[in-house]
Amino acid sequence: MKLGIVSPVVTANPGAHGDWEASADIEELGRIAEAADRLGFDHMTCSEHVAVPTEIAQQRGATYWDPLPTFGYLAARTTRLRLLTQVLVIGYHHPLEIAKRYGTLDRISGGRLMLGIGVGSLEEEFELLGAEFAGRGAIADDALAALRACWGRREPEYHGPHFDISGFIVEPHGVQARVPMLIGGRTPRSLRRAVELGTGWVPFGLSLDQLRDMLATRELPEDFEVILSTGRLLDPSADPEAAVERLRRVRAAGATLLTTTVQAESAEHYCEQLEALAVLARDLD
């Protein structure tokens, strides 16, 4: 069973992080990444928000480290761990901006990038950044097609309803011939978008029953990834039975990769929990 990690420190969503994270910094995160790398975890995550409205921060959290510099640092401290943007809001970027900036990250990490991409739902942030909120779904579809066409190409070319690209050089660019593009969302349309334009789906905010039912409505392509979160803090050291049961339930809902969160009181304790979780995962294979 392949497990990833919802990175601590880089976000502070209410009820989903430990008190110790408020005073932690990049060094603690780096030690956790090194432990995850050594223990064989598949990936770590980092979300994107530029600025969260004050009145919404209580529900969504206000801490969001930028994925690009965060992953650049973690790439230098790891050798195998993949780096998953969960998620970039594609409406905030031109497709070539992603192809260049994250293509550079793909290169310096040795092809370990996973692009989790979402359409976005925070209208105030769209307005702040001068991005178009109305019609964002159709724009996102075209941007995803453009990104796929342009990824890893020195002289990209794409002609679509919202993006028309030719006559430019992008150097450096991504080294993966087909970078994983995992579409975020919680609606049937997001799953449709993932099947048609991505290589996988990374949903949020749905129960396991809802996820299982929604996945049953689509015939998924071969090698299509479904990355599901365990949804609750696991305590593999103190309560391994509950951790195992949760892992099994999430896998049974249709996950091909699981992204986990663990209870911890410090960065050192977090690494100890990862050790215990890695043992449980091996026993479940």
Rank of each mutant, 00 (worst) to 15 (best):
Gly185Arg: 05
Cys150Ser: 03
Val52Glu: 08
Thr85His: 13
Asp235Val: 00
Trp201Tyr: 07
Arg189Pro: 00
Tyr102Pro: 09
Gly72Ala: 10
Glu225Asn: 01
Leu39Ser: 05
Ile227Leu: 11
Thr79Gln: 15
Pro172Asn: 08
Glu123Val: 05
His162Asp: 00
Leu258Gly: 01
Leu233Asn: 10
Arg112Asp: 08
Gly254Asp: 05
Thr54His: 09
Met44Phe: 12
Ala36Ile: 06
Lys2Ala: 09
Gly184Asp: 08
Thr78Met: 09
Ile26Met: 11
Leu74Glu: 12
Pro180Cys: 08
Arg60Tyr: 13
Val175Glu: 11
Glu124Asn: 09
Ile56Arg: 15
Gln58Arg: 14
Pro161Trp: 00
Phe168Leu: 11
Gly4Thr: 12
Pro8Leu: 05
Cys271Ser: 13
Ile183Ala: 04
Thr79Trp: 05
Gly200Leu: 04
Val87Asp: 10
Phe163Trp: 08
Ala35Tyr: 02
Asp209Tyr: 00
Thr11Asn: 12
Thr199Met: 01
Gly103Tyr: 08
Ser266Gly: 08
Val202Met: 12
Thr199Lys: 05
Gly91Ala: 07
Thr260Asp: 03
Ser47Ala: 12
Leu96Arg: 05
Leu81Ile: 12
Ile98Thr: 12
Ser7Arg: 08
Gly118Thr: 07
Met214Thr: 04
His269Tyr: 02
Leu206Arg: 14
Glu34Ala: 15
Val87Thr: 15
Gln58Tyr: 10
Thr54Gly: 10
Thr70Met: 07
Leu29Phe: 14
Gly61Asn: 10
Phe224Asp: 04
Pro69Ala: 08
Asp19Asn: 14
Ala131Asn: 08
Leu228Asn: 08
Arg31Gln: 14
Ile56Trp: 15
Leu197Glu: 03
Phe168Thr: 13
Thr79Glu: 15
Leu88Gly: 08
Met44His: 07
Arg136Thr: 07
Tyr73His: 14
Ala145Lys: 07
Gly72Ser: 15
Phe163Gly: 03
Ala177Glu: 15
Thr70Val: 12
Asp141Ile: 00
Thr260Ser: 07
Ala22His: 15
Val10Asn: 05
Gly103Gln: 10
Thr104Trp: 01
Glu219Cys: 00
Val226Ala: 06
Pro53Asn: 11
Glu123Asn: 03
Leu258Ala: 04
Gln58Met: 07
Ser229Met: 01
Thr199Val: 00
Arg178Tyr: 00
Val89Glu: 13
His173Leu: 01
Leu191Gly: 03
Phe204Thr: 02
Ile90Asn: 10
Ala253Phe: 04
Leu191Tyr: 04
Leu147Glu: 03
Lys100Thr: 12
Arg282Val: 10
Gly254Lys: 03
His43Phe: 10
Ala99Pro: 09
Lys100Trp: 09
Asp164Ile: 00
